[in-house]
Amino acid sequence: MSKIEKNLIIDPDIDEAVEYVEVWEDVVSIKDLVLSLIICSITTLGAYFIAPNEPPKPLFFGLFGAILGFAICSILIKPKRILESAKDGK
């Protein structure tokens, strides 16, 4: 690899454009967190409101909405963790 090429490779761990923040002992990006909060709120409350109005159906729909939101976010958002492996004793 030539010198120039090497300089072009950006360290994947550092990304100046993205703001990361630690919430609940793990790192998230603020933009993705907002996105996820919006998606999950909409799916959860949305499912709750379209449910037939006979208990406990609204609750079940709401729960399903929450899980649906979780699934959508898991597909859309990439975890901000970098996995490396190390030998013992280091």
Partner: peptide, 27 residues
């Protein structure tokens, strides 16, 4: 561990629990 760390974003977990809180608060 590899599966969870690689595929489950922390954002989605936070979203899921805040969604649940919102739902039960409204109810």
């Amino acid at each position: 561990c590899t599966f969870v760390f690689k595929w489950i974003p922390h954002e989605a977990i936070l979203g899921l629990f805040l969604g649940l809180v919102l739902l039960l608060a409204f109810m």
